[in-house]
Design a protein around this nucleic acid. Sequence first.
DNA 1: GGACGATACTGCGATCTCGCACTATCGTGA
DNA 2: TCACGATAGTGCGAGATCGCAGTATCGTCC
Lengths: 164, 164
Amino acid sequence: MGTESGSDLSPSLGNVLFDVWLAARATTALVDDAVRASGLNADEFAVYSVLAATDGMAPSDLARWMSAPATTVSSYIGRFTRRGHVRRVPNPEDGRSYLVQLTEAGRAAHLDAGRGFLPLLDEVTRRLGPDADEMHERLAVLHRILAGAADSSPEAGPPSEGHA
Amino acid sequence: MGTESGSDLSPSLGNVLFDVWLAARATTALVDDAVRASGLNADEFAVYSVLAATDGMAPSDLARWMSAPATTVSSYIGRFTRRGHVRRVPNPEDGRSYLVQLTEAGRAAHLDAGRGFLPLLDEVTRRLGPDADEMHERLAVLHRILAGAADSSPEAGPPSEGHA
DNA sequence: GGACGATACTGCGATCTCGCACTATCGTGA
DNA sequence: TCACGATAGTGCGAGATCGCAGTATCGTCC
């Protein structure tokens, strides 16, 4: 055991993977509370946010973006559609697919949730001080690495076979 | 619009909160795959890991640690107990509570899952290179800030009342 | 030592998540 | 142009998550 430093109240298990996991649980809980009044939860707010930032994404892109299984994304879209927050438009590049777009009502809901979210983000950013940018940078790096690991992982035995 | 940099394939929405969320989704997906064969999922593996590191935690501590509602932790414990992986021992400090301990079988399951997890962790750590420690440090800081924000947040209107 | 609000846990039920199996379309090769 | 494996999306069902409401115990103030 090398760095047994922490141990204040929270056994951190001291490895990057757990660190992100723990930080994200806290983040999600916080955001859940912050946007609750809008009727969205943290995950949904995230999805509304990408949709608001792009103008139409295919379900599979959404799935890749948020590292979620296709079925989960499928039910998200169903739910959002039922709410009238999202609309499906044909995907000119692929007939099996379609694009998901936020409707006006969807944008409104997103804005509404944003009203709860922004103060929280501001507070965290403020507390982070000048490190905020650095933090963003590092998380991006980590994310890229994780995406890389996802490809090279065994998963369910993809293409190659002669590695032994 | 200031920093519209990213945009390779992944609209990052460029703020710390989304960054962690995204990184964590990727992490969870990866770990889920890595430990699947052991019968655990990423979240469960994390819980087994703290339990293995401490020798007994109260449900409420567990809940605080992983930022989960009490009911969720409650059903975790029920599930783990049913698997024979966990045992409840009386909490000498509080009669309303108890301590959750990993049984031998629980430890075995954790080790088993670890066999899938460690290669992944190694790979990520290796790719992170010398930045790994720094990363850990920063995530710890962020986590601390988030924990702080959780207290000072409105939540459901805790103590004070005369603010309007 | 009793009253009483705060805190620890749990049963229940509504809703969400996601693996499996299936259909539709794409893209490549002959 | 047709065959065929790969890829996009979905219905379904099992199980997981978590809010609400309820019980037990604690701590504190009279």
